[in-house]
């Protein structure tokens, strides 16, 4: 399952620049809104599902080389955060669904 298929399947909105998402294969996932937990708990190359839209999410994702951040419940990062994400090569995706449902769908798709 590549990131392009995940974006289509979950109807995610791309907030950052286009990339060859079909070449990105998320290995696993992690869900939390406390960034200190993410920094110690998330795995390199994984997807991160969170409600947190503060700009520090970009630094955490860059640090861990995550494949993308899925921001849930339509929480909207500000322009500066999106810019920072583009500068850092971090992909931000948005879902209107809550974290529980997004994680459930990812699990169904085999991202475990």
């Amino acid at each position: 399952m590549n990131l392009e298929q995940i974006i289509q399947s979950l109807d995610l909105k791309l907030l950052t620049e286009q990339k060859p998402f079909h070449e990105i294969q998320p290995t696993t996932g992690y869900a939390a809104d406390l960034l200190s937990c993410v920094m110690t708990g998330a795995s390199r190359g994984g997807l991160w599902v969170t409600l947190q839209a503060h700009s520090n999410i970009v630094a955490v994702a860059a640090l861990l080389e995550l494949s993308a951040i899925i921001i849930t419940e339509g929480a909207q990062p500000d322009e500066a955060t999106i810019q920072k994400a583009n500068d850092e090569g971090v992909t931000l995706l948005s879902s209107q669904q809550d974290t529980y449902r997004v994680v459930g769908r990812l699990w169904e798709l085999g991202i475990r």
């Binding site: 960034l35 503060h54 520090n56």
Partner: peptide
């Protein structure tokens, strides 16, 4: 701030 945002905000 530290547990939630991991690090001080730079903005």
């Amino acid at each position: 701030l530290f547990p939630i945002l991991g690090m001080p905000p730079d903005d």
